[in-house]
Design a protein around this nucleic acid. Structure first.
Length: 480
RNA sequence: GGCCCCAUCGUCUAUCGGCUAGGACACCAGGUUUUCAUCCUGGUAAGCAGGGUUCGAUUCCCUGUGGGGUCACCA
């Protein structure tokens, strides 16, 4: 399994936009693996794409990771032995490494314009060949290169990929993977703006930061040969890879994407999913503990997680199971926890003074916190009544009698409690020999405007005598 | 299309050569109940296909099929 060498894992977000749920799921695995082995989990910001760089994205990413209940040992805000942890602050390192490769003849200058590259690719596609750099600049003479550099021509630095070599690397889940080097493009390592590409930056940083295990998305498998080549070129020991399957859209078609629905990590929180439920959901998506438990705390997960047991097939993101799991976690909350968690989801017109009365009535009915409004609005907003529905299963006369007697009886209560309300209504039903189902449902409708509600007596109690009387009166008016 | 990866109920999984193929979500039925929800009970539902290897294959190998990923001066 894992030797005594210190385990160091990392997650390397790119501040180009919203943080994806898949990123959190991957981060969780890196976090858990490091914690399990008493190692360190590093957060590094990969902001080498100046074009897509989004202002404020770094802070948002850091915040959402924390909101999910996760944290890191070293990172841009905390520093650490290998600081800085933001790639744009490490430019000189990449430059130096690129020069090293050029000196070793493992990389070369390329002065091709983007237009030319585009043309080459178009041509290749037209000939049904895989698009690949044609190595136009591979054999430029030293002198040519110096002349062009002196003239200030724009350039990039490319990796010199050997011809027809078997490139091998090991994936913890899949075993050895072999790719012929002819399939690998002469990857750009340094862009014309002087920034490194992901490939150069990730390899040098992972090495310099002594990252031992890389758990990353499966979509990276195809670029791992490039990284393997770089480790070779530098003469470095590569880390251990574990490529984690991607999330598929709920319809099972394609990688989970924005176009098919919600993907941002933040949006799930905004919809009232609890972070611990989200994490738990990520835990069991593609992995199961020995005893097949599905409800796991973060600590339990850290103790039992083994990346070697991650399923190798891409998994469908099952919203139904997520909602179920979220419901489980909502029900597990004690009252003060729920009260705290529900705060951001309270509508402005929610009567705060009744929170203690109402909240317990809906807790076991919530699958997300955001459903609170839908489930409770009849308590504090006007309701709509439908005459026909009120009259269902009986006649006008009976309903009017029921409404009046109920109002009368409730009004005369000396003590307003769930028990007294229940007692009053139950004895009315028995004394008058009303059909229970009809009477209770009619009352429910009159008082909540809905066929579905929390239990009647609790609801009436929470509503209070005043509102209850108003609504009964209104129902009377409507039916009469 | 090239290359790479993958393949058990609709979905997520267990099984690491012996299976009457187990669990969870979803679904259906029943119970509890004033509705819904919770809770309890039960049920329907799977080994992609064809070849091998083996006393025996879901499990190992090959081929096909299907799905996914990737082919940028993005990560």
């Amino acid at each position: 399994m894992t030797d005594n060498k210190t385990v160091r894992t990392r997650m390397a977000p790119s501040p180009t936009g919203e943080y994806h749920v898949g990123h959190i799921a991957t981060l969780l695995k890196n976090y858990a693996f490091a914690k399990k082995h008493g190692g360190k989990f590093v957060l590094r910001i990969e902001d080498t794409d100046r074009v897509r760089y989004t202002e404020g994205a770094v802070d948002k990413i850091l915040q959402v990771i924390r909101d999910y209940g996760l944290d890191w040992d070293e990172g841009p805000d905390k520093g650490g032995p290998f600081a800085p942890y933001t790639q744009s602050e490490r430019l000189d390192i990449y430059q130096e490494k690129a020069q090293e490769l050029i000196k070793k003849n493992q990389a070369y200058y390329c002065f091709c314009s983007k237009e030319r590259l585009e043309e080459v690719r178009d041509q290749q596609r037209a000939n049904k060949q895989p698009p690949k750099y044609d190595r136009h600049c591979l054999n430029l003479s030293q002198k040519d290169v110096e002349t062009k550099l002196a003239a200030g021509e724009s350039f990039v630095i490319r990796l010199r990929v050997p011809d027809d070599k078997q490139i091998k690397f090991t994936d913890l889940l899949r075993g050895e993977i072999t790719v012929n080097s002819n399939e690998v493009d002469d990857q750009v390592l340094v862009k014309s703006d002087g920034f490194p590409t992901y490939h150069l930056a990730v390899v040098t940083d992972d090495h310099l930061m002594k990252i031992s295990h890389i758990l990353r998305g499966e979509e990276w498998i195809s670029s791992t040969p490039k990284h393997a080549l770089l480790y070779q070129a530098f003469g470095w020991q590569p880390p251990i890879y574990a490529h984690i399957p991607v999330f598929l859209n709920p319809d099972g078609k394609g990688k989970m994407s924005k176009r098919k629905g919600t993907v941002s990590a933040q949006s799930f929180l905004d919809q009232g999913y609890l972070p611990e439920a989200m994490l738990n959901f990520f835990m069991i998506l593609g992995w199961a503990p020995d005893d097949q438990r599905e409800i796991l705390s973060l600590d339990e997960y850290v103790g039992e997680f083994d990346p070697e047991n991650i399923s190798t097939k891409s998994v469908v993101f099952d919203f139904k199971k997520l909602r179920w799991m979220n419901g489980v976690y909502i029900r597990k909350l004690n009252f003060s926890q729920l009260k705290q968690r529900i705060k951001p989801f309270l509508p402005n017109d929610f009567p705060k003074e009744k929170l203690d009365l109402i909240l317990p009535l809906v807790q076991e009915r919530l699958e997300t916190l955001a459903q609170l409004e839908e489930l409770t609005q009849f308590f504090y907003r006007d309701i709509e009544l439908d005459r026909d529905t009120l009259l269902k299963k009986t006649d006008q006369e009976t309903v009017l009698e029921q409404l009046d007697k109920t109002q009368e009886s409730l009004s005369s209560l000396t003590k307003w409690s769930v028990e007294s309300v229940e007692k009053a209504i139950r004895s009315l039903q028995e004394d008058n020999n009303w059909e229970k189902g009809q009477y209770f449902m009619m009352l429910r409708l009159a008082v909540t405007g809905r066929k579905i509600s929390p239990p009647l007596f609790e609801t009436i109690h929470a509503l209070g005598l005043e509102i209850t009387r108003e609504r009964l009166a209104k129902a009377h008016q409507l039916v009469a």
